[in-house]
Design a protein around this nucleic acid. Structure first.
Lengths: 476, 476
DNA sequence: ATGGATTTGTCCGTATGTATG
DNA sequence: TCATACATACGGACAAATCCA
């Protein structure tokens, strides 16, 4: 018998959206199972007495978000959900001077740009965003032009709390969320707030150094407690006087390692035993492509003190300038004392915040997250497969299961920088990884490269990798 | 055949009203029956040789009154006639002004809000701003969604440099300007940059403590070097080990004192002699209402090291989240070292920055500055005059020549807070000034209040002051 | 097995209410 | 007021896949 989605609401909603929702419900609810075939566009349209267009549009939407796939001229089929529904989105930008590419530098336009922090803005929902922005500007500008809550708009924080729970397993009240324009800004306030709690901060090595450096600038000593691409050694952690540890369990930088669950538990145990604090940078948290989604540290054990840090730069656009941290209850009072004294002021546009709130309320955000994850998953797979094939025997791809870049390991006496420079004139951009290792041995035979796939077209990946392989032929 | 309403009267009536009447007639008369479909807007417009707008307006009118309904993207259909037909027409809608009830959440509305940092957004150039924003969003979003120069958009910095020179006498290259979302953010980076230059910061007392606190949080000691509402004593400055002094010469907070020219020269002399640095917070610099404009310290003597600090919150709107500092040449290298290490990232929306750049390029900004200065001048004069008159003999207005607030001095044994609280229930908001004096003597007979005029309507000032005077009668 | 008919995903031109400039 | 762009819906053309006499 023909499957027919249950379009309950006659509703003012556009038909294709109602359809999309109904089918999604049936997929998530299990009524439609992997590899089930959906009715053909025409059949369903006829059944529902509508034209084919809304059906087609709804199907396309579901395909973009990874719920189903099209087999041309054969039908539409439900996909295997690679991870449980609704558990992943994107995280915060690998922010920083690393990200900005000055105009002169961008001049020799890269034909194959494997920069690690380029995002794919082809799918940026510009029209929706513009509509919401204009609507906000017209309807609420009088109110929103004034100063607002320095912690961020209450409405946005509420949406954010709900989202973080659903997608990242973060458990918090909106009151625990602090919104700010930039990660350093938030981390600086945090460092000031925690000054009496610890003389230093335990950090990963290598790591993305923004958080460590923010704390160092406030006078904290840094204690590296990991070996390259290995897990945290709790014993080594115990040897330091640090009562704060900063980690990025979703996607360790730059290796891409995902902290396994048991290690998370150990870390939380350490924190509880020592009344210590964990700063969880959820960089790459939303972009996990394979395997079970691992919930954020923050939500695993609420009796441990975890500060969860994230933002919208990577998942939506850096232009929003909206980042956030989730404070544990224990830090709320101290933080508010500090922020009042330092006259902490709002730093993210209220109009943007309100538009983003609407964007989330209306479900655009979750759709976008799924769409982007799906897109990046494809790119990630293509890149990993192509690299494996092309560099068989001489190189190795490691930890390509999350984030917007992967690591390519090559044994060669040549220097990383030399090899990076060699391909640049040919329009290929890749980056050396060793500079991020504080004990980096640049003379080791084992060289590592950061290959990003966010900004490059899916179709250009194979070609780009082939060119890279050719150009590196002399070195391997 | 296409239904066409009978527009008999060539008439003086607006087309859309004639149309509305004609269609209504046909509905009431039974020519159009329930669930009949009306011609599409374009079809009817073409048929009548008019534009679509009147047709649409007429349709909307009829929808609002329940005669027909819109089925999005399908057409307009006649509804069942509301049974109350004949009781409701467009024209006997009750006058809204009598029945209008303000929304609940506007509850703690102040009838007379003398808050010091409220701005007047009545003259905010919303249409222009929206146009520029939309234009930027449409034309340049691809470029601007991505990370940009952490120092701020080059184009905006260029415009800003030109503006600062013309309006404030600040002499700088665009490369000396750093743009950020929030003052604390910039001041924190500055404090880190200058850490080796001075063990402490000389500050005014009283002052707006944002900058001092930002430095204190970085471990600097604070040395107050002024007496209430007096000038800086260079001798006292010399007694401190501080090689940095933070001042707000345009409008000393909260007293409103403007630093006279000779004092500026002395201060610059001190800085040169001691290779010291002056942080010039030009808070309120644009709002000087009487006398010769005094140029910013920064431009008076380029051989002294002055960091000029400003922003767009007051002059345009806090929502922009765009602040800036102008670094002296000597600090450029050290600053860039720090910002690279700390991974200083852009924190103000590029789209906003670009829109603001256009706003300045097209001359809107200077017009706006002049318009606002003019408006605030009127308010300032009215407030000062009224206060002088009403509080004759018991109070005194001081330094009402700049900024968005003035100071009212009253001799009374009552506490400032008590008096502030006494008027609040009556819808009047003023603030106590003593909390800003680090050596504040709350028990002195001389009480000071901060009376802002930015957010209150010009017409309500007299009334508000009168109410204030009455309510404070018991205290003076 | 086969060739024509049917089904199917895809693509496109058009219509129409709505938003924006 | 007018013109344009956008979101949504309709219906048909096309070619590949599938089905059937």
């Amino acid at each position: 018998m023909l499957y027919t989605p249950n379009l309950q609401s006659p509703s003012h909603l556009p038909v294709y959206i109602a359809l999309y929702e109904a089918i999604k419900r049936d997929i998530v609810g299990g009524k439609l199972r992997p590899s089930d075939r959906l009715p053909s566009i025409r059949a369903l349209a006829k059944n529902l007495s509508i034209s084919t267009t809304p059906v087609e549009t709804a199907y396309q939407q579901l395909i973009a978000e990874g719920f189903m796939e099209s087999r041309p001229r054969r039908g539409f089929y439900i996909t295997q959900l690679p991870d449980s529904y609704g558990k992943l989105t994107l995280n915060d930008t690998p922010s920083s001077s690393l990200n900005f590419i000055p105009p002169e530098d961008a001049a020799p336009v890269y034909s194959y740009d494997f920069h690690m922090s380029k995002n794919d803005f082809i799918s940026f929902p510009l029209r929706t965003w513009r509509r919401l922005l204009n609507h906000t500007l017209l309807e609420e500008y009088e109110e929103l032009l004034y100063y607002g809550d320095p912690l961020g708009e209450a409405g946005l924080r509420k949406e954010l709390a709900a989202y973080l729970y659903r997608f990242r397993g973060v458990v918090c009240r909106p009151e625990q969320i602090v919104i700010g324009a930039e990660q350093h800004l938030l981390m600086n306030y945090l460092a000031i707030t925690m000054k009496d709690l610890s003389p230093g901060v335990a950090v990963e090595n290598p790591c993305y150094p923004l958080i460590p450096f923010a704390f160092q600038a406030q006078g904290y000593e840094l204690f590296p407690v990991t070996e390259a691409d290995k897990g945290i050694l709790i014993s080594r952690l115990r040897d330091t006087p640090a009562r704060i540890v900063a980690v990025s369990p979703s996607h360790q930088f730059p290796g891409g390692r995902v902290m396994p669950f048991h290690e998370r538990l150990e870390l939380l145990e350490w924190a509880k035993e020592n009344h210590a604090y964990i700063i969880e940078d959820d960089y790459g948290g939303e972009f996990r492509y394979y395997g079970q989604p691992i919930p954020a540290l923050q939500g695993i054990d609420l009796s441990a003190n975890v500060i969860y840090v994230g933002g919208f730069s990577q998942i939506l656009a850096p232009d929003l300038c909206i980042h956030y941290m989730v404070l544990p209850e224990a830090l709320l009072e101290p933080f508010h004392k500090i922020r009042r004294r330092l006259m902490f002021e709002l730093s993210s546009s209220r109009i943007y915040q309100r538009a983003l709130q609407r964007f989330m309320e209306q479900g655009h955000f979750e759709k976008h997250v799924r769409r982007m994850r799906n897109l990046y998953r494809k790119k990630n797979r293509k890149l990993a497969d192509t690299l494996e094939a092309q560099f068989q025997g001489v190189g190795e791809v490691i930890n390509a299961e999350a984030g917007l870049h992967l690591l390519l390991k090559i044994r060669t006496p040549a220097s990383e920088q030399e090899m990076v420079d060699a391909v640049r004139p040919n329009g290929i951009r890749v980056a050396a990884a060793t500079p991020f290792y504080s004990d980096g041995k640049p003379h080791s035979e084992e060289k590592k490269f950061i290959i990003g796939f966010g900004g490059i077209d899916l179709e250009k990946i194979e070609e780009g990798v082939s060119r890279l392989r050719e150009l590196w032929n002399p070195y391997v």
